[in-house]
Design a protein around this nucleic acid. Structure first.
Length: 690
DNA sequence: GACGCTAGGGTCTGAGCACT
DNA sequence: AGTGCTCAGACCCTAGCGTC
């Protein structure tokens, strides 16, 4: 339990009407900041009586010396001694029940509450402790004030009705405490959650917040799952396995989809009657699942939903939680697959085009202004310098945002005049990697490093080892959070007045670039695309990006349709017929009227109509009038000629029939003529176009 | 190469901390 | 008590890698 007002240690005081020793009218426990929960844990032993349930303070709860000076008129001990001056034999209990407790800003008292409510609140606060980052005694004091007229928290009325004058923050605290108390009471009496159709996820240990709009503690109404057996299985699994929030959400999504699909089929309310076809129906529903906004969900997500749903079914079979479940209701790995869709041909990848990056560079002076994150810790100039350095690193190194943010404070290394960036590959768990960088990139880092050294005294010590340290003591990681970078980049990009993309409108004006395509990770794609366009060998780029497999590197950049068209346009102008006569055509006409055959295209109509599978002369292309050899295949054709020569020699050695040798010779001659003509035409071209 | 799993990133949004 | 800022959860997605 953290404490507000940044106090390093504090004292929680529970005033009791049963003082344990003479002269001490308050039972109190000292605790250091975050360890209050240990104290509360020791108080958590409670029992149920016939008419009410209450907590019992454990004997391990220590009574310690009052930290308030006894000379102080605020100290209850001192006040009690003063009280006894008039009736020397006055009892402590009646007196203490009427006394306002002494409270420092970091303390609260439950004394004003009736006894049952006092123990309920205490238990609730103990349970609520792990759900909070910082515990605010002031909120508890307000809650206690507003609860004074209440008898018990276990009541059907809403929080607002219980404390109509409370502020939003107090009602939030009250809601948490009531959730915890209700869950504890229900668990003790054995009424929930094993039988409830409304699951309280927080009471089940999930520390989760809710999607937009829902402010109440998160509950899930299982009554939307129409099949009682499926509802029961999900409830049992949740209660017994206590899944995390994400695991539960995916499983629930799978169950919802399955329930909807099964509801369309007769007899699926009886788990024993389920068949193989029912599994197929469930898989079909997941295979075509949509996101909540109506768009098709991604393949990996749908796969994950299916995986979680069938893990639940397996749990039912395995654990006996679904004893009646038909043995036929299992996934068939061979047939119940969720295939990955083909990538869209027109998709041009996620790289930010270089002209757009140049426009971003031109507006670098705006980065870190406006709503930049971290204004409370850093001066405007320092903030700008930090974000500028982050941008340069993203742009020049192609590293993932988290890798840039978590760079070590001393991340530069110079060997043989080559400067390298030392970084950690979190994703592949390979650390202390080295990436060669340019002098200008290194200079940008050094400039920030020098300024960062001067700032260290004003920064939280947890981030001392990092180049971009956490800026507040609340941060859960020692380095800057990814959302800082993402949100500041978003605000910067939105603040740039004009950002032109590629192409123009009908009036010739440049088209605006879609700003949503600019985000931190997109610079990694740009880095890969930049290297690919510059001709960096794939294996070198793989090393630079620290990928294990080349296929991963290839996924980062794509050959855009435009680049393909450029290539087709250039080559289409040099297509020749089999006599070597130029046979130029528009790229579209050529694509429409031809079909790919070995080493070029075929324009024979019946073969084109059959998509290349119906050659009337059995693919004797070199001698065909419809053959359009493609200059890009020149090296391959020459290799093919060599193979034909080798085959002819083999045939001669085998003393093959004369027509076999003649056929090889004719093919070789035909392909030689094709290459000869193409080479002559290419030689006549300007050097730049070859 | 298809499939499936795990770890973790991008983005949106609300909770709640910190400051006034 | 009001308000702006910070951070973490939800949801969906990508990357990396192992298995078949």
């Amino acid at each position: 339990m953290g404490l507000a007002a940044g106090s390093a240690s504090a004292v929680g005081v529970l005033l009791s009407d049963h003082p344990s020793e003479a002269g001490a009218c308050c039972r109190q426990v000292c605790f250091q900041g975050a360890h209050a929960s240990r104290w509360l844990s020791s108080v958590a032993c409670w029992r149920l009586s016939s008419s009410r349930w209450l907590f019992r303070v454990s004997s391990s709860t220590r009574s310690v010396r009052c930290p308030v000076s006894r000379a102080s008129s605020c100290c209850p001990s001192w006040r009690f001694r003063e009280h006894r001056r008039t009736p020397p034999d006055a009892a402590v209990a009646p007196w203490a029940a009427q006394q306002p407790p002494y409270l420092a800003p970091h303390q609260f008292s439950l004394l004003p509450l009736p006894e049952l409510l006092r123990w309920e609140v205490l238990y609730g606060l103990q349970q609520v402790d792990p759900w909070l980052r910082i515990f605010e005694p002031a909120q508890v004091r307000r809650m206690v004030r507003d609860l004074a007229e209440t008898g018990t928290l276990i009541d059907g009325i809403r929080d607002q009705q219980m404390c109509p004058r409370s502020t939003v923050a107090v009602l939030r605290m009250l809601g948490r405490v009531r959730t915890a108390v209700r869950a504890g009471h229900a668990e003790y009496t054995g009424t929930a959650p094993a039988q409830d159709d409304v699951l309280d996820l927080r009471a089940l240990g999930q520390r989760s917040r809710t999607p937009a709009g829902i402010r109440q503690p998160k509950t899930v109404d299982l009554r939307t799952i129409r099949q009682p057996w499926l509802r029961g299985l999900l409830r049992t699994w949740t209660v017994q396995q206590r899944p995390g929030a994400d695991e539960f959400a995916r499983t629930l999504r799978g169950v919802e989809l399955a329930s909807r699909a099964l509801a369309q089929r007769p007899g699926t309310d009886d788990p024993a009657g389920l068949r193989y076809d029912d599994v197929t129906a469930v898989v079909d529903a997941i295979r075509t699942a949509l996101k909540r906004d109506g768009e098709p969900a991604g393949w990996n997500y749908r796969m994950s939903i299916a995986s979680h749903f069938f893990a639940l079914i397996d749990y039912g079979h395995r654990s006996g939680a679904a004893d009646d479940l038909s043995a036929a209701f299992v996934r068939d790995p061979a047939l119940h697959r969720i295939p990955e869709q083909e990538a869209n041909e027109d998709e041009i990848g996620k790289a930010i085009p270089e002209p757009v990056i140049r426009q971003l560079d031109a507006h670098l002076h705006l980065l870190g202004l406006g709503r930049a994150r971290g204004q409370r810790t850093l001066a405007p100039d320092d903030l700008q310098l930090m974000y500028r350095t982050l941008y340069i690193l993203l742009r020049d190194t192609g590293q993932r945002p988290l890798e840039v943010l978590s760079l070590p404070r001393d991340c530069l290394e110079t060997r043989n005049d080559q400067i390298s960036l030392i970084w950690n590959n979190h994703k592949a768990r390979r650390h202390r990697r080295r990436l060669p960088i340019t002098t200008s990139t290194a200079q940008a880092i050094r400039t920030w490093q020098e300024r960062r050294e001067q700032l260290q005294a004003s920064l939280p010590p947890t981030g001392a080892d990092y180049l971009f340290p956490a800026l507040t003591h609340l941060a859960t990681r020692p380095y800057l959070h990814t959302s800082y970078l993402g949100e500041t980049l978003r605000d910067w990009v939105d603040s740039i007045p004009h950002l032109h993309g590629e192409g123009t409108d009908t009036q010739g004006n440049p088209l605006p670039f879609d700003r949503s395509l600019i985000y931190a990770y997109a610079f990694r794609h740009s880095y890969a695309q930049r290297h690919a366009d510059a001709g960096t060998p794939l294996d070198v780029l793989r090393e630079l990006m620290d990928h294990k497999s080349v296929s991963t590197t290839q996924r980062y950049y794509t050959v855009s349709l435009k680049r393909k068209r450029d290539a087709v346009t250039k080559l289409a102008a040099h297509v020749v017929d089999h006599h070597g006569h130029p046979s130029p055509s528009s790229e579209t006409a050529y694509e429409l009227r031809s079909v790919a055959v070995p080493y070029g295209g075929c324009t024979e109509p019946s073969n084109v109509k059959a998509a290349g599978s119906s050659c009337p002369i059995r693919f004797q292309c070199a001698g065909c009038g419809f053959y359009r050899p493609d200059p890009s295949y020149l090296p391959a054709i020459e290799q093919h000629i060599n193979e034909l020569r080798a085959d002819r020699e083999t045939a001669q050695a085998m003393d093959a029939a004369e027509f076999v040798i003649t056929a090889f010779t004719a093919q070789i001659t035909a392909y030689e003529q094709v290459t000869d003509r193409m080479q002559r035409r290419l030689a006549a071209l300007p050097v730049a176009e070859r």
